[in-house]
Design a protein around this nucleic acid. Structure first.
Lengths: 355, 355
DNA sequence: TTGTAAGCGTTATCAC
DNA sequence: GTGATAACGCTTACAA
């Protein structure tokens, strides 16, 4: 349609008022209007009021493209991710949008391929082109130090999201996975479980390592250890849960409980249990991690750890650009960047058979 | 790589080459360079080559902010959604990014609240500010005609994604839900099922209506009808599946199969079946719709309809901005905007008990 | 086919 | 405190 209207500014998309119109109406210069827009301190309350009144009257909205050109920076924040878990990514997006809702910022999304050897080049090109105010790195790529350094070099602010602090607080929003896993596993021990299987996350993932540490800590507290045959490899995928369960549940002395490093693998374990006619939770207790939709969609509903991902999204946006988010944002950001995960008890856990 | 080497170019973000640098090096005017960038036809192959060589040599990348200002349009496409299914949204995003990967476009994401009475204002503000090239509307908000009209008025190209054509082909990418549901239900009939329950989608959703039509068509073909007590309301949520199943499975003559309008509700139905000790698929067959991760994470794995959402994302991007996506994009876009859903058979379906 | 001049709407510089 | 004037990097007239 006609987006290129002319003086007659007829119909849709008709000329929006510009800073010049505001200046003229308020009887001041462009620059003064600009000062008001950008909250400069050096202004008489009177001038400011006059300008604000003119802005109001005209319904003026600063043109972000022009600002971007002048600022050499777009009023965008970028979300870089290569996360296999859709729910996680989307919840995070929601959180970010909660935070930037009333600001001038918008959210740019960029999935990347962590396996690609062009990863850094891709991200560099992206950041150089889009020039966002800041970038948010979701795990697992948040664990890539080169990526963080790249942002730094490009003058793009960044936050790294993780299962544990990955950087200084300023550049990091994390959760306390380890602690909460300990809590979860402790509950298993308290119920009387002694042979507890573990399904690991993928090698090289910080989150996987944290969850494993938490698991082992809880065991150690109880004076238990993790026999090699009860420690199954995994990669956060459903099929890995299947394979792990096939192995663990065929053992001469199978575990009475299994902790899985995420829900998806827990769902796999549960399927195998069903297939083998092993009652859950009667004969086998299962705990997952993520509190994904899967956790409540499988039967019985899965005890798991809820990761405060939406809140982390909001917090990430706040630490990234407190100045643009209006009052309050900054204060919250100062509180610290570690948010609490919580253990959610559902129906997949019970005392062990002989208990 | 160092793309920013320059005399004074100190540290990070040092001056990138501009169109002027290219023009100077190639010995032509700015405008000619601009023509090359924008693929103007009126150019000597020779000049074009010279300019391209200069661009290459300098590693010049046009500044999107400046272009946006001059074009009065940002090189962005927006995804507007209020879709409860994270996987759907994310897969769609992936598809879009598949399509725009090698272009100058970037993806802007905007969740909206379809319940809000400020919906139109929100979207208007967003579009006026960001001025994207185009917008993609995911269901259910794709069904909102006012939103489409708004895009039209604002000079923002748009595509509506749906379970059936919602607009002229130019503005629409859809799947053939109805047909495929018919295929799925036909398979139930072929196995001998005669009492087939139906769990509806939310009232007012086009997708829900299409699926219901497909269901009824298959029944009609077989000379069957849908007794009122076998037609359960739903809203695409897990809990609705629970409620529907509680009702259907308590009937004096319960159905031997249930078609659910999405996977999530199917998961709810399956939970209830498990809880009541009803064997799936032995005593009850279940079919869902979406082929979400849940479909394979529950046990037994769910027969369902795969919605080609990623492909739809790519197609949507193509129909929206074929010119920017390089050669090939347009041709594909001409093929038509209806993509095929497919029936995926897994383990949740079997002949009825007595059969 | 190519070049020149004039914006696009904002911010930065530096006087006043 | 405030205002001319020149950027910002590119595109669209309109010539040549």
């Amino acid at each position: 349609m006609a987006a290129q209207d002319r003086p007659g500014g007829k119909g849709p998309g008709g000329k929006q008022p510009t800073i010049n119109d505001v200046a003229a109406l308020a009887g001041v210069s462009k620059k003064t209007v600009s000062r008001v827009i950008n909250r400069s301190e050096f202004l008489t309350d009177k001038t400011r009021a006059a300008v604000e009144q003119a802005i109001e009257q005209l319904g003026f909205v600063p043109n972000p493209q022009a600002r971007a050109l002048a600022f050499r920076r777009n009023f965008l924040i970028a979300l870089l991710h290569d996360n296999p878990n859709a729910q996680t990514v989307l919840n995070f997006q929601r959180g970010v949008l909660d935070a930037i809702k009333d600001s001038d910022l918008a959210l740019l999304v960029r999935p990347v391929d962590r396996g690609s050897d062009k990863l850094l080049d891709d991200v560099r090109t992206f950041l150089e082109k889009q020039r966002p105010i800041g970038a948010m790195l979701l795990p697992p790529i948040s664990e890539n130090d080169d990526l963080a350094a790249l942002c730094e070099n490009l003058g793009v602010r960044y936050v790294r999201i993780g299962s544990a602090p990955l950087d200084d607080a300023k550049h990091c929003v994390s959760s306390n996975d380890r602690e909460v896993v300990t809590v979860a596993v402790r509950s298993l021990v308290a119920l009387g479980h002694r042979r507890i299987g573990f399904v690991r996350g993928p090698v090289g993932f910080r989150s996987a390592a944290e969850r494993e540490k938490g698991f082992l800590e809880a065991l150690a507290e109880a004076g238990l250890d993790l026999p090699a045959e009860l420690n199954a490899p995994g990669n956060y995928r459903y099929t890995a849960g299947i394979e792990a369960a096939e192995a663990l549940l065929s053992l001469p002395a199978p575990p009475t409980a299994i902790f899985c490093s995420n829900d998806e693998m827990a769902a796999g374990v549960m399927s195998v249990a069903h297939g083998k006619g092993i009652k859950v939770p009667g004969a086998l207790s299962i705990i997952g991690f993520d509190d994904s939709p899967t956790a409540t969609h499988i039967w019985p509903a899965l005890s798991t750890v809820r990761w405060p991902i939406r809140e982390m999204g909001a917090r990430a946006a706040q630490t990234l650009v407190p100045d643009f988010l209006g009052p309050g944002a900054k204060a919250a950001g100062d509180e610290g960047a570690v948010l609490a995960s919580t253990f959610v008890e559902r129906q997949s856990v019970a005392p062990p058979p002989e208990g």
